[in-house]
Amino acid sequence: MKRVYVNEKWCLGCRLCEYNCAFANTGERNMALALRNLEISPRIRIEEGSDICFAVSCRHCEEPLCVKGCITGALSIEDGIIMVDEDKCVSCYTCILSCPYGAVSPSEHGAVQKCELCVKNRSGAPACVAGCPNGAIVYEER
């Protein structure tokens, strides 16, 4: 299955992926309109240490702890992609606690949010990949 992979060798820490992710998930047509005066809450995040940085998003694990721990069945695997059903989510945050990558976060609508490879939004394909200026984030079969 194709997944989002990050090569820290080429990650510049510019954080465009975070903004492209946030924008893709607003459903708006214009980034300036969508994100002006907004504190973004992206599903991919840059981790930075002294001289290293890389983006982290859901790994879409084959045996995901978040899905196993979900008490309402809000998290499920569809065609290898781990999806959130916002209607079922009760915001118990078990998934947030159990994800070893910190890739699940609370969403603004009360439920949790995580990377769903942009299949549900207008982008259609991972926006972080498309917007990465240095080819550090790729979407490929490995």
Binding site: L12, M31, R36, L38
Partner: peptide, 13 residues
């Protein structure tokens, strides 16, 4: 300024 979203990419780059 009506377009700037304060992403600070300019600053970082």
């Amino acid at each position: 300024d009506s377009r700037c979203i304060r992403c600070r990419v300019c600053e970082r780059q």
